Simulated assay, not measured.
Amino acid sequence: MSCYRLQGGNLLTQKKFVLKLLRKYILLFIGAMIAAAGLEFFLVPNQIIDGGIVGISIMASHVTGYPLSLFIAILNIPFLYIGYMQIGKKFAISTLFSVVSLSYWVSIFHPIPGLTTDLFLAAVFGGIIVGIGTGLIIRSGGSTDGAEVVAIILDQKTGFSVGEMVMFFNLFILTSAGLIFTWDKAMYSLVAYFIAFKVIDITIEGLNESKAALIVSEKPDEISAALMSRLGRGVTILHGEGGYSKEQKNVLYAVISRLEISKLKDIIQEVDENGFVTISDVHDVMGGQFKKKSIH
């Protein structure tokens, strides 16, 4: 009986693992399709580029006349190898699948005419759609940009953050676009890149992005009770001391979602008009009573 239950448990665990893996690669495939649609329906027909290796591929395709999908695949190969050696096999496989999927969808969508010739509309909608697709890929554990792989590795060896290095790399690429296309196209490319960058963040974090609130009030018990009853959030009470007055104070710490910020401010205003609150970003939350949806 014990052996049977153990085997049944293993089968159930294997089934969950396979379903989770299948879901991951389906999302990577869909993300690549969405990103390719943004590129081929809006950006590429109007000579507006994206950042990273995709941006270099667009320029290389324009200069040489060879397919964009070919450059996306070839130029990412060295970075895939570096990622495999430095970051890990799992990430490299997910990234390889994402790059191949993006190349595939780009080749499928390329014969279809662009949806607009208005450069501003192309930059805005292209940026939004590419951002959604890329964000979905990153959120599912993949990547389509070898520059990010290098930035992750260099982050461990230099004083610059991943974001700073990616930004510097992309500014160089966008400047090159001004020389190959026109400076107007380069500026529209910068608009598209900025929009895509912000949409990627929203797609990865979701509208329920976590925020940390620190509250200093003369009525900590009342505010704590209100937060727990009206928001359903647990509250931690920290013991602090005024820097000037040396007065003992209770500081409330709570993790909320982005959509709950307004309600939290209303609660504090109702309970204690003199209450002081600071709200900051939280990059990740695990455990406790806080529930955060994830597609990993």
Rank of each mutant, 00 (worst) to 15 (best):
278 T>H: 03
23 R>L: 12
131 G>K: 03
97 F>M: 15
91 F>K: 11
110 H>N: 12
250 N>W: 01
52 G>A: 01
14 Q>E: 14
107 S>V: 05
225 A>P: 00
102 L>Q: 05
210 S>Q: 12
28 L>A: 10
283 H>S: 10
103 S>L: 04
151 A>G: 06
93 I>R: 03
43 L>K: 06
67 P>N: 02
203 T>F: 07
207 L>T: 14
63 V>G: 03
202 I>Q: 11
121 L>D: 06
165 M>Q: 14
293 K>E: 09
276 F>D: 01
263 K>V: 04
178 G>M: 12
255 V>P: 00
83 G>F: 08
169 F>T: 03
198 K>S: 04
33 M>E: 06
247 E>Y: 06
130 V>E: 03
210 S>E: 02
175 T>R: 05
160 F>H: 13
6 L>N: 08
272 D>F: 00
264 L>K: 04
3 C>T: 08
77 I>S: 13
238 L>Y: 07
229 S>V: 05
132 I>V: 07
40 E>W: 02
75 L>V: 02
258 R>S: 10
126 G>K: 00
114 G>I: 02
214 L>E: 10
235 V>W: 00
59 M>S: 12
149 V>K: 06
147 A>K: 11
125 F>H: 04
24 K>M: 15
216 V>I: 13
41 F>K: 11
133 G>I: 05
31 G>D: 07
198 K>D: 09
144 T>S: 09
197 F>S: 11
198 K>Y: 06
172 F>A: 10
134 T>M: 12
93 I>G: 07
129 I>A: 02
293 K>F: 01
134 T>D: 05
271 V>F: 02
38 G>I: 05
111 P>W: 09
32 A>R: 01
192 A>L: 05
216 V>G: 09
145 D>G: 15
104 Y>E: 06
94 S>C: 10
158 T>H: 10
250 N>H: 10
59 M>A: 12
43 L>A: 10
66 Y>E: 11
166 V>I: 15
251 V>N: 02
33 M>V: 12
8 G>F: 11
275 G>D: 00
67 P>Y: 02
246 K>F: 15
62 H>N: 11
46 N>I: 08
21 L>D: 13
41 F>E: 13
130 V>W: 02
60 A>L: 09
173 I>A: 12
83 G>P: 07
78 P>S: 12
284 D>M: 09
99 V>Y: 04
17 F>H: 15
85 M>T: 10
107 S>R: 11
100 V>E: 01
70 L>C: 08
63 V>W: 06
296 H>G: 15
79 F>T: 06
62 H>P: 08
231 L>K: 15
133 G>R: 03
87 I>F: 12
215 I>Q: 07
151 A>Y: 04
44 V>N: 08
144 T>Y: 01
30 I>A: 07
176 S>H: 13
283 H>V: 15
253 Y>R: 02
4 Y>D: 13
269 Q>P: 14
38 G>D: 03
2 S>T: 13
149 V>W: 10
218 E>C: 06
90 K>H: 14
226 A>I: 02
105 W>D: 00
75 L>T: 05
21 L>N: 14
72 I>N: 03
123 A>N: 00
